[in-house]
Amino acid sequence: MVDDKKLEIAGRKFRSRLLVGTGKYKDNQAMVAAHEASGAEVVTVAVRRVDLSRGTEEAMLNFIDTDKYFILPNTAGCYCVDDAVRTARLGREAGMSEWVKLEVIGDEKTLLPDVVGLLEATRILVAEGFKVMPYTSDDLIVARMLEDAGAVAVMPLASPIGSGMGILNPINIRFIKEAVSVPVIVDAGVGTASDAAVAMELGVDGLLMNTGIAAAGDPVAMARAMKLAVESGRLAYLAGRMELKQYASASSPTSGMIE
């Protein structure tokens, strides 16, 4: 049987190809249970001002076992290079890791990335020693530019953040996978398990999702469904699917029929 290697990003090996977010859960207990069921090792977090009016509330990070999970700060909500770079630096200081999921958003309604700003911010942060994982459009030219700029992975969107619309343009995702040598992690848009399987069947290295799990009726059940779908899609990709045919091809012998 095919032997799958581990997901490896910038020399670090991860046992799961599913990366999960920490946003939109009804409470921290639900989040912890979903993370557990997902089998994920990497969890993303956002960087925000401490709310000084409620200083006694327990910090979200206290609920996450940082010996077990690798914390990946993001720059979500940043609309310019300067904000994204400052947020990444703050995240590094708070997280004590050089890794960042870099977002430079260009449009409020679609949350699509500003790829020009993204490329500039990637160059700045790579020069400062960051391991940059940019959230990008499904454009292979941009993906290649990000790789050339030193990104340790590229993370094209499947459909807009939080939309759950699935893989809108599978061929573009495949083009990106063929065009770059760094890992390709599909980030955003996965709504249900079949979307995750489709993404993995395209040959991408991993999948990052938040809303698909957190906004499900039962996030723990969906987390497990996503775990299985990612493994299943990956295995199907490695197995090599059968050739598509236009007409039927009998599975049973056509000779030896009774008369």
Binding site: G23, A46, R49, V50, A94, N210
Partner: peptide, 24 residues
Amino acid sequence: KERYGQAGLGDGDVLEIIEFVGGG
């Protein structure tokens, strides 16, 4: 962090204090 104890504040300084919150 290691400089918090020595880093003096001056009139007009602008500070941002952040932490991690839920996000994707």
